[in-house]
């Protein structure tokens, strides 16, 4: 229970990642970073993580959505909690017909807007981890 939680950040903005990473490391989380969706997906498939922090607009476009969809279809990764952190200010949820953020991409996901207040970031991460753990406990 008190084991250090492993988090993965997939975001192509190195400055934002550096800020987020320092906040999370200080709160005793183990943080890995992938700066593009391809590396991110590979990391997810090779190493176990407790939570994913995912950006939406990366590379050619909204590739974060692609990752979230792939996770939703993957039976192993479906239960990984995901915190979507996006700088999108337009009302874009309409552009993902039938697959808006809610109903969820994966079992437990949440969305916050960039830039995130450090306190809120930590609260969200903690809440998502707790919810995922409670779900795991229920399914057992």
């Amino acid at each position: 229970m008190n084991q250090t939680k492993k988090l993965l950040i997939i975001d192509d903005d190195p400055d934002f990642v550096a800020g987020m990473k320092s906040i999370l490391v200080k709160a005793n989380y183990e943080v890995d970073v992938a700066y593009n969706p391809k590396d991110g997906l590979q990391a997810l498939q090779t190493k176990p993580y407790d939570l994913l922090l995912l950006d939406i607009m990366m590379g050619r476009g909204a590739e974060g959505i692609m990752i979230a969809r792939k996770l939703g279809k993957d039976p192993k990764l479906r239960n990984l909690p995901v915190l979507i952190i996006t700088g999108i200010r337009e009302q874009m949820a309409f552009l993902f017909p039938g697959q808006a953020v809610h109903p969820h991409f994966v079992a437990v996901d949440e969305l916050v807007e960039k830039p995130v207040e450090p306190k809120l970031l930590l609260e969200k991460v903690e809440a998502l981890l707790k919810t995922a753990e409670a779900r795991k406990g229920q399914s057992k």
């Binding site: 050619r60 476009g61 909204a62 590739e63 692609m66 969809r69 993902f96 017909p97 697959q99």
Partner: peptide, 10 residues
């Protein structure tokens, strides 16, 4: 479609 993965057709 390259920029925004609109998703499957409804």
């Amino acid at each position: 479609r390259h920029i925004i993965p609109i998703g499957d057709k409804e």
